[in-house]
Every structure is written in C-alpha cells, then in structure tokens.
Amino acid sequence: MSDMLQIEVKVNGAQRLIDVAVHHTLLDVLRDDLELTGTKECCVVGECGACTVLVDGRAMNSCLMLAVEVDGSEVTTVEGLATDGRLSPLQEAFLDAGAAQCGFCISGQLMAAHALLSRIPHPTVEEVNEGLAGNLCRCAGYEQITQAVLMAAEGGDR
C-alpha cells in the first residue's frame, strides 16, 4: 500500500509510465500531470459527461475513477481522435453540423459518440439520444449533435 504509485497506461496510443497520487482521479492526472486538457471538468459527480474518456474502448467518466484504476489499461481522450492532424469523420461531422457551440461539452460528447458508433455503427435517433444522455450541453445543441453523429454514421467507417 502506498499513497503514490507508478502506473503503466497507454494514452492515445503511447505507452506511458506515470507516478500518480493514489487519491487523484483519472481526470486530475490527465489534465494536471499529462497536460491533456481536452478532457473537461464540470460536475465531478458523473452527471455531465464533460470528462468522458474511453478506457479499454468503453466510455467512462474520468472524474469518478482513480487514476490507479487504469493501470494496465488503454485510455483514449479527445486528443486521440484525430490521426496525424487529420480529423476523424466524427469530428468533421461535428463541424459540418454546427454541433460545437461554446464547445466545453464537446470533448465528452465526441468520446461518448465515438463509443456509441463503435457499438452501434448505424444508430437511430433514439439510440443516439440514449447514448449521449450522460453528456449535458447547456448550449443545448442536442439537435445538431445528434445530427452530427448520424452524419458520421452515414459516412460509413470512421
């Protein structure tokens, strides 16, 4: 037992060894230690989804996980969606549909949408709304976010 622990995590494809305080959340470590600030902090109770990341492919609230819990896992953040500076079709669709307004929730929306499309490549509107129900948007651009996800799905393989 200790209050610091070295963990090994694959973050956006790169293997990392990080010393973390055991009481720090994955969100803390991503933002403060790894300076991956695309993942956002808002409610810190798992309600808003702004901190959503993928852990081993599943969408999770990084505010509700200790960083030590992802030891040995693969973590994908919004910074990991584009490849070689090229936006993913999902990101492109968000731009085309006007889905990003203030943008603060968008990282989380994108991660939740990415996970949804991995599971259901051609979702219905209802499935998109259900899949993104854990991501609050106070600009309430839900219509355009949903449209973006549907457009990305229509565009075929992401």
């Binding site: 991956l36 600030t37 695309g38 993942t39 956002k40 953040t77 919004v78 910074e79 969606l81 584009a82 936006l87 990101q91 968000f94 731009l95 085309d96 006007g98 990003a100 307004q101 943008g103 603060f104 968008i106 990282s107 994108l110």
Partner: peptide, 15 residues
C-alpha cells in the same frame, strides 16, 4: 463552419 471549431472538436481550444 464555426471559426474556432477545430479547437473545439480536438480538445485544443484553451479555456
């Protein structure tokens, strides 16, 4: 497309 949109969909926008 939104000016500033790129930063908002890549996490690069600095709030």
């Amino acid at each position: 497309q939104r000016v500033g949109g790129y930063g908002r969909v890549t996490g690069l926008q600095q709030y």
